Simulated scan of single mutants.
Amino acid sequence: MSLTIPYESLKTLNKPFETEFKTKFNNFLAHGWYILGNEVAVFEKDFAAYHHEKYAVGVANGLDALVLSLRCCNFPEGSEVIVPSNTYIASILAVLQCKLIPVFVEPDIQTYNLDPKKIEAAITAKTVAIMVVHLYGQCCEMDPILTITKKIKLKLIEDCAQAHGATYKGRLAGTFGDFAAFSFYPTKNLGALGDAGAVICKTESDYEILRQLRNYGSEKKYHNNLVGYNSRLDEIQASFLSIKLPYLDQINTHKIKLAGLYHEKLKETFIRPVVDQDFKHVYHIFNIRHPERDRIKSYLSDNGIGTEIHYPIAPHQQKALSAMNQMDFPLSSEIHSTTLSLPCSFAHTEADILHVIDLLNAYA
Rank of each mutant, 00 (worst) to 15 (best):
residue 350 E to D: 04
residue 281 H to V: 04
residue 332 S to K: 04
residue 78 G to W: 02
residue 320 A to L: 02
residue 5 I to K: 08
residue 250 Q to L: 11
residue 361 N to D: 08
residue 105 V to A: 07
residue 236 I to W: 14
residue 145 I to G: 07
residue 157 I to L: 02
residue 9 S to Q: 01
residue 85 S to C: 12
residue 94 A to H: 07
residue 35 I to W: 11
residue 179 F to L: 02
residue 238 A to V: 00
residue 349 T to N: 03
residue 29 L to S: 14
residue 263 H to M: 09
residue 82 I to A: 06
residue 183 S to N: 01
residue 302 D to E: 01
residue 112 Y to G: 06
residue 187 T to C: 09
residue 338 T to L: 01
residue 131 M to G: 08
residue 99 K to M: 05
residue 215 N to Y: 13
residue 110 Q to Y: 11
residue 90 A to H: 09
residue 289 R to Y: 03
residue 197 G to A: 10
residue 143 D to L: 12
residue 95 V to L: 13
residue 145 I to K: 10
residue 314 A to F: 05
residue 128 V to P: 01
residue 275 V to F: 14
residue 331 L to E: 13
residue 117 K to S: 15
residue 327 M to C: 11
residue 175 T to K: 01
residue 331 L to K: 15
residue 159 D to E: 01
residue 288 I to D: 02
residue 81 V to F: 07
residue 361 N to Y: 07
residue 255 K to P: 15
residue 103 V to K: 07
residue 197 G to P: 14
residue 126 K to C: 09
residue 204 E to S: 15
residue 17 F to Q: 02
residue 216 Y to I: 10
residue 144 P to H: 08
residue 194 G to F: 12
residue 363 Y to A: 06
residue 167 T to K: 02
residue 47 F to A: 13
residue 240 F to R: 04
residue 131 M to R: 09
residue 349 T to G: 03
residue 28 F to V: 14
residue 318 Q to R: 12
residue 32 G to T: 02
residue 172 L to A: 09
residue 163 A to H: 02
residue 119 I to F: 03
residue 103 V to T: 10
residue 88 Y to G: 09
residue 144 P to E: 08
residue 263 H to S: 06
residue 194 G to C: 13
residue 77 E to W: 11
residue 23 T to S: 13
residue 168 Y to L: 04
residue 98 C to Q: 08
residue 323 A to H: 12
residue 220 K to L: 05
residue 299 Y to L: 01
residue 313 I to C: 07
residue 208 E to C: 05
residue 87 T to M: 05
residue 318 Q to K: 15
residue 244 K to H: 08
residue 46 D to S: 14
residue 149 T to C: 07
residue 214 R to E: 09
residue 77 E to P: 10
residue 2 S to C: 11
residue 115 D to Y: 09
residue 358 D to V: 05
residue 216 Y to V: 10
residue 228 G to R: 07
residue 280 K to T: 03
residue 52 H to Q: 15
residue 24 K to H: 14
residue 309 I to M: 00
residue 127 T to G: 06
residue 288 I to N: 04
residue 171 R to N: 12
residue 199 V to T: 07
residue 32 G to R: 01
residue 93 L to I: 13
residue 8 E to V: 13
residue 66 L to C: 06
residue 268 E to G: 11
residue 351 A to N: 12
residue 219 E to T: 10
residue 224 N to I: 13
residue 97 Q to D: 06
residue 192 A to P: 12
residue 229 Y to S: 11
residue 223 H to R: 11
residue 301 S to K: 14
residue 204 E to T: 15
residue 200 I to Q: 08
residue 122 A to T: 04
residue 76 P to V: 00
residue 117 K to M: 14
residue 269 T to W: 04
residue 206 D to Y: 08
residue 298 S to A: 15
residue 304 G to F: 02
residue 32 G to P: 01
residue 99 K to G: 02
residue 229 Y to W: 12
residue 95 V to R: 07
residue 51 H to S: 00
residue 295 R to K: 13
residue 8 E to S: 13
residue 163 A to M: 03
residue 222 Y to K: 03
residue 151 K to W: 10
residue 311 Y to M: 09
residue 259 A to Y: 12
residue 308 E to G: 07
residue 36 L to H: 11
residue 60 A to N: 10
residue 235 E to A: 01
residue 43 F to C: 01
residue 60 A to Q: 10
residue 341 S to H: 00
residue 73 C to R: 04
residue 61 N to T: 02
residue 197 G to S: 10
residue 350 E to Y: 02
residue 314 A to I: 05
residue 158 E to K: 03
residue 84 P to R: 13
